[in-house]
């Protein structure tokens, strides 16, 4: 345990990983959370999640990362989990251009269902498969630029950039938060506007805003 959190501050950020089927979402997550890669991993049914912590400014920051099914048919249920997410990794497979072409759809999906500012990163996964690459680094970069996303190519198999990518998103969320807290009036405003937009069963509006200091 870190001895830095004497002020009792702890951050919990909810992050979602989305993208087409078989781009490597689950393995990116297990590589980050447990430093494992499972060559026999199965298709995710519904949603699964893992948590991982890091220290920023001497504070423990916990990321709760939700891994979703990639097949379009699951979107009716997976999109329910976008609520309250403050970070998102949109993943494609550099060896299959169709997964890259679908990034726009995933971004639309995210924008429709999320209820707050989301730190987004575009991830081109499987960069170890250079010999069968179908999407160039430049294409990835320029899409990320035009959509205002961070960008990184990763390999869950050989670990390239995995930790860096997740931590970059977490740091961005953290700095979004700090900025908000500096200006607490607008922070409150956003909180209350979030409450209004939430659909149902939301008795307090507190749980849904997952980056709370508890």
């Amino acid at each position: 345990m870190s001895d830095d959190d004497e002020r009792g501050e702890e951050y919990l950020f909810k992050i979602v990983i989305i993208g087409d089927s078989a781009v490597g979402k689950s393995n990116l997550l297990t590589r980050y959370a447990r430093n494992e890669f499972n060559p026999n991993s199965k298709a995710t049914i519904g949603v699964e999640f893992q948590t991982q912590s890091m220290v920023i400014d001497g504070k423990e920051v916990k990321a709760q990362i939700w891994d979703t099914a990639g097949q379009e048919r699951f979107r009716a249920v997976t999109s329910a989990y976008y609520r309250g997410a403050v970070g998102a990794l949109v993943v494609y497979d550099i060896t299959r251009s169709s997964t890259f072409e679908n990034v726009g759809r995933w971004l639309d999906e995210l924008n429709t269902h999320s209820d707050t500012t989301v730190a987004k990163m575009l991830i081109g996964n499987k960069c170890d498969l250079e010999s069968i690459r179908a999407v160039s680094v430049e294409e990835g970069k320029s899409l990320a630029e035009s959509e205002g996303l961070f960008f990184m190519e990763t390999s869950a198999l050989d670990s390239t950039n995995v930790k860096t990518a997740f931590e970059m998103v977490i740091r961005e969320i953290y700095s979004n938060m700090s900025r908000k807290q500096l200006n607490s009036d607008s922070y409150k405003e956003e909180l209350s506007s979030n409450r209004v937009s939430l659909v149902k069963n939301d008795n307090e509006g507190t749980k849904t805003f997952s980056c709370c200091s508890r």
Partner: peptide, 22 residues
């Protein structure tokens, strides 16, 4: 479960869809 916003039981989706194979 309802208080936790889990009244829809979405967390049980996999058990029912693949009949506990996982």
């Amino acid at each position: 479960l309802e208080d936790l916003d889990g009244g829809e039981y979405l967390f049980a989706i996999r058990m029912l869809m693949v009949l506990f194979r996982r």
